[in-house]
Amino acid sequence: MGKKTKQIAIYGKGGIGKSTTTSNISAALVEAGYKVMQFGCDPKADSTNTLRGGEYIPSVLDLLRENSRVDAHDAIFQGFRGVYCVEAGGPQPGVGCAGRGIITAVQLLKQQDIFEELDLDYVIFDVLGDVVCGGFAVPVREGIAEHVFTISSADFMAIYAANNLFRGIQTYSNKGGALLGGVIANSINTDFHREIIDDFVEKTQTQVVEYVPRSLTVTQAELQGKTTIEAAPHSEQAGIYRRLAKRIAGHTESKVPSPLDAKELRAWSAGWADQLIEIERRSERLVANA
């Protein structure tokens, strides 16, 4: 006891690769000997699947639905090399309040002093979406995560989501909330993708922590219900995840980002869209000429 648990939140739009990346970071950190908990904050409750052989675990909110009092221990499961897995869970789409669900789940663990009891080195929150309501902002608020990373591809919708998150961070930054560690660029396979992301982080005064390529190894691992670290420990992709994990673990100085406002963002994406069309045209011409 006595050490301070480092708490990190990873945000990004649905399907962008949050859970995949987070799980690989968690796996890499346990592999390196740390005590790690991955905390899924997505009503889908599938954040930790690849840490547990593809298996779903009962969520905190599932337990809350069934019982009048919940022992947080009942919601904690161990996976790959002892990593602790927790899913907040949430309602069916279209009913209830998922944001409140996250508040509830996080508070429950905090009140029962779980992070201290398990003597954790890292808690990594895998959080859905851009900041949609107060509930989803919980992990960036004071006293929970200190550092936030956002996952984005070069896709505009993903960048919109990242920019929105930056705005959330800005709101909470002067009230002791979490600051931005940087962007994890996912599915970056071309220089062009890289240029878009680089430009975005420059405009918003942040940084890219790692470029993660889209890779079949990831897909194959996922099919076995495993992280890349577990399924293909010697692959190049595993190496990239390890490097990412190390950077995140070693990361200390986070900053307040400068998100683009709606107009700037539109102008910015329009600029890139023009270039994109230009490139496509050129490649079409190439195909036609061939």
Binding site: C133, G134, R141, N174, G177
Partner: peptide
């Protein structure tokens, strides 16, 4: 305010 998740702590601290 519990449902919309207002961050009461931060204002109070400030």
């Amino acid at each position: 305010t519990g449902i919309i998740g207002d961050d009461v702590e931060s204002v109070a601290t400030a």
